[in-house]
Design a protein around this nucleic acid. Structure first.
Lengths: 145, 145
DNA sequence: TTAAGTGCAAAATCTTTGCAAATGT
DNA sequence: ACATTTGCAAAGATTTTGCACTTAA
């Protein structure tokens, strides 16, 4: 596994050992700029990593705040690296995603700011996730041609 | 099963036959004012309904737009009846939920309006789901006492 | 009457657990 | 060297499928 200083650093920061499977997962996730489902990850990683190790890696990464889960429209779980802002202090508290109902891809739209909401009295807000579903630009283009 | 005209009407409107299992599911879901997980539903329904029938009922209801899925923080799927607005034309296109990280309940905050969002060019929006996580009023009270 | 819906059994999937071997520090 | 992490096998859960029986219209 070729060294990627960023990834090594990321693992060290979270008191995780630098291992091949973990680096592979990070490598795949950074390549794709969207959230990836567990089955897709499994396929992308090929036989580089055991299925069980993948499960464990994903749950470790989630605990540590290295990645976050997103629920796709079809009910599949998708995983995405938290944005750089995320990994800094504790955890970025806002996530905006777009789920294309045609290609099923889940895009991270972390640039988008979630507007202020009027939460009912007595409720304390810690985290906000916003999922927009529809058709992504690629699929829109493909069909309008 | 005691007749609830509303429920019967709901089923008829969607070309579904009025059956005991379906009415039981509707009865339970209307009682609880929050989203309910499949395992919880199973427990609440007791032996009134086969597990397989529950799966099938839920997926039928979801297809027809009678209820919608919500993803809880812990990764469990929760089901909630769509608000009345929902069942009318086709499908209400905005859902706001609150997931308490202590009691794990998922509240439907369908009164809340989601502010306008600036979706990137080329993307078409069909549906917006917003999930707020934090601590609900009951749990807040319980701890502040 | 007859198409839709149910319930059981069994298959297929998905996820977790236990433990010995391998690996990173 | 020692604690962590991996990979395999197997257990446990969850979800789906097939099919005969039942039920609503």
């Amino acid at each position: 596994m070729q060294a990627n200083p960023q990834h090594n650093q990321l693992l060290v920061k979270h008191n995780l050992k630098i291992t091949t499977p973990r680096l592979s997962v990070l490598a795949v996730l950074t390549t794709r700029e969207m959230a990836t489902s567990q089955p897709d990850l499994e396929q992308l990683l090929g036989s580089k990593i055991d299925r069980v190790t993948l499960y464990r890696t994903l749950s470790t990464f989630e605990e540590k705040g290295i990645l976050h889960k997103v629920m796709g429209a079809n009910g599949t779980l998708n995983y995405a690296l938290c944005s750089s802002a995320c990994t800094q202090h504790q955890h970025h508290d806002q996530h905006v995603h777009f789920n294309c109902t045609l290609c099923l891809n889940v895009y991270c739209l972390d640039k988008l700011q979630i507007p202020q909401l009027q939460i009912p009295d007595g409720f304390t807000t810690k985290k906000i996730d916003l999922m927009v579903s529809g058709v992504c630009d690629k699929c829109n283009n493909a069909y309008s041609k």
